[in-house]
Lab assay of single mutants.
Amino acid sequence: NQASVVANQLIPINTALTLVMMRAEVVTPMGIPAVDIPRLVSMQVNRAVPLGTTLMPDMVKGYA
């Protein structure tokens, strides 16, 4: 099973992602693959992402 990107903290809307905000976890359903974490750094979320939420492609501006 491939790990997905999960929020390590509450990420407010329009926040630029940093490594500290994300962790890799095997979850269902799968979200953004953990291998993409370096690519996500400095991209912004388009909604508030609660702690423990799996990041989906439509939550990150410019990802999809």
Rank of each mutant, 00 (worst) to 15 (best):
I13R: 05
I37P: 00
T28L: 04
V41K: 05
V27P: 01
D58N: 15
E25L: 03
A64T: 15
V41C: 07
L55Y: 01
I11R: 00
P12V: 06
D36E: 11
A7D: 01
V5G: 02
P29N: 15
P33Y: 10
E25C: 04
Q2R: 03
V5I: 11
N14R: 06
G31I: 02
T28W: 04
L19K: 06
S42N: 07
A16Y: 04
A64S: 15
A7W: 02
T18I: 05
M21Y: 09
A24V: 11
I11L: 13
P57H: 10
G52S: 13
M56C: 14
D58P: 08
N46T: 14
M22G: 01
M30F: 09
I32V: 12
I11D: 00
V35P: 06
V5R: 00
P29G: 06
L40G: 00
M43T: 10
M22Q: 01
G52P: 00
P50Q: 07
L17C: 01
S4N: 01
N8C: 05
M59T: 08
V6N: 01
M22C: 03
G31E: 02
V60H: 01
P50F: 15
M56V: 10
Q44F: 11
V35W: 09
P38R: 03
T15K: 04
M56Q: 14
N1W: 08
R47L: 12
D58R: 04
Q2Y: 14
L55N: 00
N1F: 15
I11Q: 00
T15N: 11
M21G: 03
L51I: 14
P12Q: 12
P57Q: 11
P12T: 10
V26Q: 14
L17W: 02
D58Y: 05
R23S: 13
T54P: 11
V20G: 11
K61H: 13
G52Q: 05
S42D: 05
M30K: 03
M59H: 09
N1T: 15
T15C: 05
L51P: 09
T54G: 03
T18Y: 03
V45N: 03
I32R: 00
Q2K: 03
R23A: 11
V20S: 12
G62R: 05
M22N: 00
N8L: 06
K61P: 10
Q9L: 10
Q9F: 09
L10T: 11
P33A: 14
D36W: 04
M56F: 05
M56P: 01
A24C: 06
D36Q: 08
T53K: 08
V41A: 09
M43D: 04
N46S: 14
V5M: 02
V60R: 00
L40I: 11
N46L: 14
P29D: 11
L17G: 01
G62C: 09
N14I: 02
M59F: 12
G52K: 09
M59Y: 13
Y63D: 04
M43E: 06
G52D: 12
V27F: 02
P12F: 07
P57D: 08
E25P: 00
V6G: 01
V26R: 02
A48I: 12
Q2H: 15
R47F: 10
Q9V: 09
I11E: 01
Q44S: 14
I32C: 04
Y63W: 14
P57L: 05
M22E: 01
I32M: 03
G31D: 01
T15P: 01
K61Q: 13
V60Q: 01
L19T: 10
Q2G: 15
A24N: 14
R23W: 05
G52Y: 08
T53I: 12
A3G: 09
V5Q: 01
V20C: 09
M22I: 09
E25H: 04
M59Q: 09
V41N: 06
T28D: 15
V35C: 07
S42L: 06
P50C: 06
A48H: 12
L51K: 10
V26D: 15
M43F: 09
I13M: 12
N8S: 15
G62K: 10
Q9R: 06
M59S: 07
M21I: 04
L40P: 00
V35R: 03
N14D: 10
V20R: 04
M56L: 07
A34G: 12
Q44R: 06
T54V: 10
A7S: 08
V20Q: 10
L55M: 12
A3N: 12
I32G: 00
N8W: 04
A34N: 06
I37A: 06
V45T: 13
M22D: 01
P38Y: 05
T15R: 08
R39K: 13
V45E: 00
D36N: 07
